[in-house]
Design a protein around this nucleic acid. Sequence first.
RNA 1: GGGCGGUUAGUUCAGUUGGUUAGAACGCUUCCUUGACAUGGAAGAGGUCAGAGGUUCGAGUCCUCUACCGCCCACCA
Length: 919
Amino acid sequence: MSSELTPRYNSKDIESKWYSLWESKGYFRPKSDDPRFFALRTQNDKRPYVIVIPPPNVTGILHMGHALNNSIQDILTRWQRMKGKDALWIPGVDHAGIATQNVVERKLAKEKKTRCDLGREKFLEEVWKWKEEHGSTITRQLRRLGASCDWSRERFTMDEGLSRAVREAFVTLYERGLIYRGSYIINWCPRCQTALSDEESSHKEIQGGLYHIKYPLAKPQLAGFEKSALEKIGEDHIVVATTRPETMLGDTAVAVHPEDPRYKHLIGKKLILPLMNRLIPIIADPFVDPEFGTGLVKVTPAHDPNDFEMGRRHNLPQINVMNPDGTINEKGGSYQGLDRLEARKKVVADLEAQGLFVRRDSHSHAVGHCYRCNTMVEPYLSEQWFVKMKPLAEKALTAHRQGKTKFYPDRWTKVYTNWLEEIRDWCISRQIWWGHQIPVWYCEGDKLCFPDCKKPIVSRQTPEQCPVCRSKNLRQDPDVLDTWFSSWLWPFSTLGWPNQTEDLKYFYPTSDLITAPEIIFFWVARMIMAGLEFMGEVPFSRIYIHGTVRAQSGLKMSKSLGNAIDPIEVIDEMGADALRFSMVMLSAQDVYLSREKFEVGRNFTNKIWNAARFAFINLEDFAQGKAALDLDRSALSLPCRWVLSRLGQVTQEINGLISNFNLSQAATVLYHFVWNDFCDWFIELAKPSFLQTGAVARENTQKVLFYLLERILRLLHPFMPFISEEIWQKLKAAAQDHSAWPETIMISRWPDDQKIQDQKAEEAIQWLQTSVAGVRDIRARLALSPGRPLRAVLVSPRAEIRNILSEYKKEIQNLARLEEADVRVSFKKSPFYIVNAFPDLEVFILIEGVIDPVKEKERIEKKIVETKIWIESLSKKLSNEAFVRSAPEEVVQKEKEKLEAAEKVFQAQKELLELLSAS
RNA sequence: GGGCGGUUAGUUCAGUUGGUUAGAACGCUUCCUUGACAUGGAAGAGGUCAGAGGUUCGAGUCCUCUACCGCCCACCA
């Protein structure tokens, strides 16, 4: 074998090389695509492992949230693939209705054009053009990350197949009576000029005002409501409180609680609505909270959801005073044309002028904001399409009760079920152009046609003519569907639905869904409902919700805040593996990122690289061709037996951790195994045997080193695909006979090392490590140079420890740089001075040198006190009957052993003290 | 207003069903360029596990309350 590794790991040259190999060879495609494996598809006992990607927005560029989300998915996919599963990770991109339309509109604005200038068709052409040019940015970036997606199955939510799925879903739901159209209060964004679903409007606390306004009571003699009459009213009025005074232009009543003694007598009386001079009634409704404000609520059915409901109960007219852009319309009298906030100011000013404004209290309350452009949302009455959600939610809840869906961590389950239990209908129409146009047509034919022509035509195919009057003059509903109306079909639409494709039959339902908490409602819950509704089966059974990525400050990372770290920059600088590993290691919960945090991963890649360099240097004359161990483990040296024992344990531990989505823990275990066990101890312990040319010990150690490195690379591969491949390929190239090796590590098998625990070896190494650390400690404390030859005596009251130490004296001498080491039962006759003691580990180290006996005496005295306390607490525990009775036997046994040891230590310490006193 | 999460070393965080003397990384102090690695090695200092009660032989871990921080949900105008 020969080495050609550079001293530093350089990610740049190798990442694209291996990625293109993997992709071009089709290794990201499931095995069942290969005719030789086709039988897999019909085998029911061997289900494939499938993940669908949360499709990033087509406008998106990779951010750290994506980096974490996709690293996790890739680790799981690669791991399952190596475990022999037929693994499929389906990638794709979301058309992101409003977001994309906004991007293209902004682009047009630079050319001083609006979408209306272009018209719908031309505008959509522009969007598609934009998509062709920029839409693949994010998928290119996912490749940089190492994502092993099956790109041959990549989908776009607006592609033909998915559009067909959307139509199918819409029409099916309509036929099942689950889609309806109607005038309701919805969240309206005046800037985007479209409806938003409840989930798309996020509440933000704002400091607003609570305006108190006088509404004059109408007296019978003032039935007419000329201005002059108003002036005569005097104190005969009531006071209402509102946060949005401008909506009073659309008031059609004032409500009080039916039992409110203050106002009971007013019920049924009329008021004169100021500024508009309209007569409105005082109604009684239990919704009103007598405690809030003045106990009198102005009712604006067209501009407030509660008022809307109240209006329906009392048959009130709905007066919509606002244009879609948030300005006041002709129904708002003299305020027409003013923006809603302008109008608010003017209304207040005018009321003040008329003596009808009482006061403005400061009032903080939560107001919805558009999740896309952050504009304050207006509750707005308009005609929209809705999905009736209750029946869908019921199915999802049933599936949950049957244990068909499981959230990791479990606490998200409640968030999910609570939302389902209190679900409200979903407003799915959007007044934008980019998206799936609603598959509904209206007959605009001949004016003489039947009233039936008013009925919308809901159809999977674009209809040619009106089924009633046969007019060809049909107009499609101009609205498009909410983006999530296509994404909720994602787990089966990507597999070909509504066609019953082979893929759909074999891969559905998928296995795991990996996502962030913020889209549980938007997406996860809806996918489950859609899966049950259209496929009759949950789309996935396990949902892993990982943490949110934030900037160090705790704020969300965003470009506009300037606190974003670009994952691609990190990849360029440190490598994709460093990024992935750092992210995953840190992701036990929410991740607070700063640039330095990636150094963990970067340093780790470098460590791995250099460990490999060491291996190659020392394996130069190694002829072992296969990675198999063909020797008796018991014949191996202690460090070899120990490290193999650790490998088995770690492999098993990591398996368990990944199975439960505990990736950060898995990464940490791997990290410490590689760094501490493999590099710090095994390699250091192995070094001497490499000096013995031709010896059996040397060859055995080489075999183990080779074996171990190869296994470690495979364990690392799901986490760090690039560096593991690079080193593994060099290892393969160096092996004499590699005919049995797969082409690349990514299609190799996950290590199958059983948990072969070599208890004895592990214990021995532990004592060895302790002894060496003890000597090093002394050296450091006495400022003895590392080169200075020293002699030491290791003292233990326990025979088994003495045996171990005697057996590995050589190793200890080597690592601790001792000229001589001696092991004894007692130090009584020792010519050495005692400078360190580890009572907990029952090892004493005596060392020759000049020391301060007084200082050392103090140290020992302190230790003795500690030991006394320790013994006391142990014997107290053991003399406690309740403990002995109820604690597990092993625990009691351990405590007994501890006490025994502690007493011996105590004796030894006392001897030590005597010795020091004597000197 | 409702719900959820957090509070452990200077900092960022682990700590799985209660059971050795509570761990890691980074930072800090001291030493070391010894042939894999200074993106390194060795050693060390540093914590009454937010506070108060309770359950238990035993609590960082379970229960109750309090304080502070964060997130999500929510139609009191």
